[in-house]
Design a protein around this nucleic acid. Structure first.
Lengths: 350, 350
DNA sequence: TGTTAGCACTCCATTAAAACGAGTGCTAAC
DNA sequence: GTTAGCACTCGTTTTAATGGAGTGCTAACA
């Protein structure tokens, strides 16, 4: 496939993409002929460019314009031509150590930092605790007709819910339920909790009582993660205005709406989780995008993991001519920071 | 002040504002002369308009253009010239009855509906439980080095926090603390809980123990609402593109950033809470705005109240030529719906 | 004194035409 | 295989011309 491309063609393609990344304008043969380690005239470049156009790696917007990379061209660039270079985002580590009090805030800041560092739009999804287990469950009486259910998982995420009782429940029953819940569910992975399991619990608790059944259902609901609940923080949506090819009103409007609504971003996160590439980094270019709204963009996503199965996604959304190298780099670096975050906290806390 | 304006001038000003709202273009004398109940020629209108310009109610963008309303003009319109008309948003009530399961979702939907109904940008702040009281507190042991603190307030909002212990704590101490907390804090309004109160509790608990002090501090932190924590949902930020006077890149970018960051919106909410006008509705026009970013916009905000002191803010952000009547109307109607929401839920739940 | 018609003038917006220039593709020579 | 040269294309920018909405003023009228 790409072995059709000899060294020089590759060099030229790379030069075209690099230049186009900077300027956002179609690039011409003369510009490339001046490129450092390529000592050929513009005419030769023209011939090569003509070939590259035929092969579909670059596109000519109109007869007398320069060339711009096609999706296929970008793809080749990301897969082969890109050389990774080191790059640090110490700011983020700093920030995280300073205030790890609220996960929310950290993630918001991560998004903000990412956006301002890259000049693209950034998103961060709040980690889902996929592999985590139940550590502790407690039902407590709030008053005669209300209980509160508290569920703590082994990554210290606490979920809770108020349960309105339809009939009174005595202390003994509550005690019994607590015992039942903890003996049966402690250590159980959250995604293993299903209707069958709850049914079995109901039996054990004594199926005569509708109230007990109701309470158990409520507890199950407390545990279960709501699929639509995927929270996402974004930042720098307006960075897209920096790239004329995305900045016209209708496109920008559509994109920014997607950022505001977050539904499509959630879709993107799910998609990424499904087909995570090597390093846990995926690159979607133009039409490869699972989300139609962003077909004029490229998206680079990375999975991060906060210990014990809490997995989230960070992503950068930008123009197709985004600087893939530095974006992939930033994400990788950030991913490492986030992956290390839990250990850091634990040291501090314990 | 405004008694300087005779009936005809008022009518003309009103006509100018109405027309400008629709078109967004400067309006000329001929247009107004054709206005229904104003049987005078354009020349007469010109004279009157000249006066209105001198008085500062309308502005002339350049010599040979029509006039546009000034902030002062809009202000007069909102304060005097606007006649409220009835208008219903049944959709919202419907929506709320259908799925009251998650407050979050309802509020998100409220924002979305508001934005799509008005064609402006909408925001909804998650209510803060300002006047609410503590109903129930419980410390539970999760394992040897961890407690979880759960605080339920009388409007059924549950807050919780994991507490990492630096040294072990026996069950008896936990029991004692639970008793202490509930006897001393039950029924106490949340904003009344301060450092002095906590200090007193610490004394009662036995000031010898650093662990106990730490736990009490953590409980206090759990109770206290984080000031920066004001959550805000937005929708329809991109509606601003519909109004050319806001749609140029730099302005739009700034505005949308404000929507994304939410910090300035939070500021707006606080401001509104402070100086709520009659009906709980405030109107900020142009430079009256507490937030600099939005000085080219108008904002209409309303307070809603979900029973027992839970107060939140809904708001509409649009161009200065926004249709104040229908916006105020929508907000009022919505406010009523939201105010009635808690009763509705309670009926269903109990 | 208030209202109106008429008209010259201003200034923005639109359109049309012209000049520009970056870039290609081809050919012929090296 | 590489290169210089040149005609040609086509989008962009510049400039000029035209049109028209709207004002401000004056003079006449009720």
């Amino acid at each position: 496939m790409d072995s059709q491309l000899d060294e020089r063609k590759k060099k030229i393609l790379k030069a075209i993409i690099r230049t186009y990344m900077e300027t956002g304008e179609p690039v011409g043969s003369r510009t490339i002929s001046k490129y450092a380690d390529l000592n050929v005239s513009s005419a030769t470049i023209r011939n090569e460019m003509s070939d590259l156009t035929d092969m579909g790696y670059i596109i000519q917007p109109h007869t007398s314009a320069g060339r711009i990379p096609s999706d296929k061209g970008y793809r080749l660039y990301v897969d082969e031509l890109m050389i990774e270079k080191e790059n640090e985002i110490n700011e983020i580590r700093q920030l995280m150590i300073e205030k790890t009090d609220k996960m929310e805030k950290v993630l918001k800041n991560v998004a903000r930092l990412l956006a301002s560092n890259t000049n693209y739009a950034a998103m961060v999804s709040v980690p889902q605790y996929s592999g985590s287990r139940i550590k502790f469950i407690q039902l407590s009486r709030v008053n005669t007709t209300q209980l509160v259910a508290v569920v703590v998982s082994d990554n210290n995420v606490v979920r809770n819910q108020i349960i309105d009782l339809e009939e009174e429940m005595d202390d003994e029953t509550i005690l019994k339920l607590n015992l039942l819940l903890n003996t049966n569910l402690n250590g159980v992975p959250i995604q293993d909790i299903n209707l069958g399991m709850i049914a079995r619990l109901k039996e054990q608790a004594g199926m005569h009582s509708a109230v007990v059944a109701m309470v158990l259902d409520a507890v199950a609901a407390t545990i279960q993660v709501d699929e639509d609940d995927l929270q996402i923080y974004t930042s720098g949506a307006t960075n897209i205005f920096k790239y004329p090819e995305l900045a016209d009103t209708s496109k920008a409007s559509e994109l920014i709406s997607a950022f505001e609504e977050k539904k499509e971003l959630a879709h993107l996160v799910k998609e990424h989780m499904a087909d995570t590439g090597e390093n846990g980094i995926s690159v979607y270019i133009g039409d490869e995008m699972p989300v139609q709204t962003m077909k004029d963009c490229s998206v680079v996503t990375a999975t991060y993991e906060l210990g014990s199965g809490m997995r989230g996604t960070i992503g950068i959304i930008g123009p197709k001519r985004m600087d893939y190298e530095s974006v992939v780099d930033s994400l990788k670096s950030l991913k490492v920071q986030l992956d290390g975050l839990v250990e850091g906290t634990r040291e501090k806390g314990g």
